[in-house]
Structures are given as structure tokens and as C-alpha cells.
Write a protein that binds this DNA or RNA. Sequence first.
RNA 1: GUGCCUGUAGCUCAAUGGCAGAGUACCUGACUGUGGAUCAGGCUGUUGUGGGUUCGACCCCCAUCAGGCACCCCA
Length: 425
Amino acid sequence: MKNIIPPVKGTRDFYPEQMAMRTWLYNTVRAVSESFGYQEWDAPFLETLQLYAAKSGEELVKKQSYVFTDRGGDEITLRPELTPSLARLIAARQSELAFPARWWSFGPFWRYERPGRGRSREFFQWNIDMLGVNSPEADAELVAIAASFLKAVGLTPAQARICVNNRRFMDLEFDALGIPPEKKSEVSGLVDRREKMEPGPWETNALEIGLTPQQLDGLKSLLADGERWRKSDELVRLFAALESLGLKEYTQFDPNIVRGLLYYTGTVFEAFDITGGVRRAILGGGRYDNLLRDVGGEPLSGVGFAMGDVVITLILQELGLIPPLPVTPAAVLVTIFSPELLPASFSLAADLRRAGINVTCYPESAKLPRQFKFADRMGMRAVLVVGPDEAATGKVTLKNLAKGTQETILRSEVIVSVKRILESA
RNA sequence: GUGCCUGUAGCUCAAUGGCAGAGUACCUGACUGUGGAUCAGGCUGUUGUGGGUUCGACCCCCAUCAGGCACCCCA
């Protein structure tokens, strides 16, 4: 194209239309978070590399983080996730905070990945966590928040589902199969890959890892068993709580969910679009018991999840679930008939603003067709004209753009009439 | 980081190695105080970028950049 400097790869420009969508998502996230009593917080976008070094996944830190050395020689990371920062903040004030702490956040994150459908290098993410309580019911609350969000954006249980599993439960099942502790993380990876691989290569992969044929058979029947959660007290209590919270229909037990991040210790869950359009996870989270201790705090358990803006926006767009969003904050245009009448129009606009109405003035005298066209393009609802006739008689002309009707009214009636048009739809 | 596919007007896309086109958008007018609809006219290009082959390249070859899909990973 022309000599326009391109944006950084994997970043997105937010034109007003996209910004309106981002703000709508943010407002929805806020409403859902606050409905469960969570407080908003945030951390720096820049953190030390050290914060992530031992806690996040190897892949995330070593290959996917933006790391640079600042002018003072410190290794700085553009945050790839929020949970380690959360642990840092909590640990620093552990003795003065009221627990359980219920915190949520929405902000930018960076991961050096190959951009594609549903993936960008700079994205926004909703994080929500409860710290200081370790119970299946607390886990259920976070799953319920995720379900409430899905419901709030108009996704039905037939369109989106939260798959829940438990790492302790899986550990015990692995033990029962005689899988040695040092193999468990590899086997977890194997489980994670199951959905994405053909059965043949997957089984070959399993044997390469060192599973015996009997262990492989046991693993396959474990992963196919949708009822085995009943053996786990934690999962039984979690699903019972979800039942009481009225959101169980959005959830299901799925032994195939294990998640890549190292710090999860108990409940893990991920939400998916099950209509098939986008196969990536909408959100994911779980319980982490050791994170506080790992950053130098007293042991404290937490549970939470994260949701990126890219996948959910894609899904909602495909399903047509994003409501019509106003393109301009001002739905009223005051035209400028001529240079001589500009003061009359400006003072009319000022009157409307004093009455609490958002108003745009055309910034110069121009042909009326041009000004009306501008109002139409901007999606405005009403246009006001103060021409020579109106000025001479103390009136204004008010046009309802949606209906195509107009009337010439006394200037003293204009506020009421404009408000009537704005409220009519 | 790996493999495959695609880059042509602001946008969506044509053009078999032989004059770069259509729809849409935009601008002007029909309509000298009124947007959308209709009609008429007009504008729009370093064919992503840089090389190469050829009498001649949007087309073939190489490189590079960007995007899409599948891996890897994950929000």
C-alpha cells in the first residue's frame, strides 16, 4: 500500500467501532464481577523476569514473553499473565488484607506467539480470583462466575460449556494406573494433546513416553469415563454447589482438561464454544495452592480464571450476539446555516448541553445536504437547523432522522422535543 | 519455531505470459433550506516489497514482509 508505517505484528488498532466493542466487553465483565462482590485492581504492565521464572510454564516464560534489558541493566518482562503479579501484591500485604480477597482485573497482556485466528500478541484479559479460602465451594463460585458471564453475553448451554476437572483426582487415578510420579507431567501433556491428535499417533506417543499397554488401556478408559468424578469428594461438592447456584447446566466433568500452567493443583476448568466455529478455549483457570509461598509469602490458596478478549469477541461476532453499539456519543447535530448564523447555532448547542444532552455542532458553515449526510453517516438521531426564517421568529427546525419527519418549533420547546426523539428508541 | 495457502482500487473480488477490470464506497449533478432510495457522470492502482527469467510478467522462479489454515502453545 502507500507509505503508511505498519503496526507492530500481532497488535490491533482500535477504531471507534472496535473500541466500543472493547468497552462493552469491559462493562460486561465489570457487571458480572461486581455481581459476585469482587473488587477491581491492577498491577504494572512491566514486571521483572524473575517474577515469572519459576512459576509459569516453561514455554510461557522462555519463548512467549517479551523480555528486554532496561537502561539500568534489569531484565524486564511485558506481563504475559497476571497471576504471579497477584501473588506478589497479596504476599506484600498478607497480614493486613481481609480474606477471602475477591479481586478482578481487565487489562493488556503480551505474548510473543504466532498471530492467527483468535490469537494476537497484544490482547486484553479478564482475570478474577479468590484468595484465602480452599474449598470446592470457592472453586464452584469461580466456575459460576464464568458461567454467569457466558449467560450475560447471551451464550446458551447449547453454545458454550465449561469443562471441569481436578488435578488431585487425576493424580490419584494416575497412581491407580501405576504411573510413576516423574512421568505424571508428561502424561498430563499427553492428555492435553488427545483432542488434537489422531488416535493412532496418540497411542504411539503414549507408548514412547513409556506407558505399558495396560496403562494405556487404563488411561483411555479413564478419559472416556464421564462419571468417574463421583469418586472425588472435591468434584462431588463442586458440582453440588453449582447445582445450588443454578448454573450447573453450563458445566460438565471432562477428564481431558488438565491445562498447561504448572501452578494449578486442584480444580481446573476451561470454557469452549461447542457450536464448532472457534475451537480455542474461551477462558480457563483453576486452583493454585503454592503460588503465594513461591513468591515469598505465607502459604495461601487461591482460585481464579482468565479470559482473553480475542476469542470471545470472535465467537460473539460469529453468533451475532454483540448488541448494536452507539457509534457516536452525541445523537444530535446542530447545523450551521451560514457564517452569520453560527453564533445562533452555537448558543442553541450550549443550551442543549446545559440540559444534559450530548450535542455535536457542525464545525463550519457548509451546504445543508453535506451536514445532513454527516449526521446520517455518524448514526445520529436528530438534526437541528437555525436558518434565517427560524432566527427571525425565535424558532428552530428539528428533524427526526429515523422517521424522516420534521417540525419547526419555538426555541423554548426544543429541549423537550429533542429528549422525546432520543427516548423514542 | 515448522508445513501449506493467499496478497490486484478505501472495501469485496476478476483478468489462460500479450492494452489492469467489475461491484461497492467516495465525489459531482438531477434536488439553490434537508440525510438514506433512484438515475446520470466522474475519481481511484509502484498488482505487498525487492530481485530474476522473458521480446513482453498480476501471471513463472527466488527472497522478503503481511494475512489465513494446520502443528506447537495458550486467554
